[in-house]
Amino acid sequence: MIDFHQVEKHYGHFHVLKSIDLHVQEGEVVVVVGPSGSGKSTMLRCINRLETITSGDLTVNNLTVNDRKTDINKLRKDIGMVFQHFNLYPHKRVIDNITLAPIKVLGLSKEEAEKTAMYYLEKVGIADKAKAYPSQLSGGQQQRVAIARGLAMKPKIMLFDEPTSALDPEMVGEVLDVMRALAREGMTMVVVTHEMGFAREVADRVIFMDQGQIVEEAEPEQFFASPREERTQTFLSRVLSH
């Protein structure tokens, strides 16, 4: 579903992504971990072309992401994205945050879009906040709205860019619960996170990145119990020791 083949990315002289090869199957949950600045978020953002690649091939849902002929909006409507800072639209109520893209991009009627929105709001457990403005919600609630907003487009893939990093500790759980449920339903997910517990429990595959490279990828049991690479071992010993 997502295929990186020898993808390179440079920011000027800075080599952000180095020969990335990554293949994500339908229904798979891939969790990407690694130190800050390792290129995990950049790699994720290449998938829906929030970042462009310098060379290599990247296909998503059989579309060549960086082909000029590719209709980028068509590609993006099948890829939901959840951001670290939620990025809800502060001037719109929760329900309108969710219905905007389904109405404008998918061409749903307002009623249909609102019905879908309410379905997903219920699913993430905050249907009672539909008429509220984002600023009236807690961080955890805002992030759940953001997930509902992504889901309302009925995407084939959901991307999560450090979805719990900006949350107070007591709100991390509610967001991870929603993501866990989503994974169980078979959504194709790529998750960049520092939540090792989530990676261990939910991931089909864990990817470890460092300095722009994929250093190691493995199933979670093996990844956490017996990492092959020294860099992975060092990283894990740092993040798991506390």
Binding site: N48, L50, N73, K74, R76, K77, I79, G80, M81, F83, H85, N87, L88, Y89, P90, H91, L100, A101, K104, V105, A146, R149, G150, M153
Partner: peptide, 24 residues
Amino acid sequence: GQIEAARSSGLSSFQTLWHIVLPQ
């Protein structure tokens, strides 16, 4: 970030300008 959110949901740059950037 809001512009990225709007664009990544498939809205065109004009729709993003009209619905997200201009009102705020």
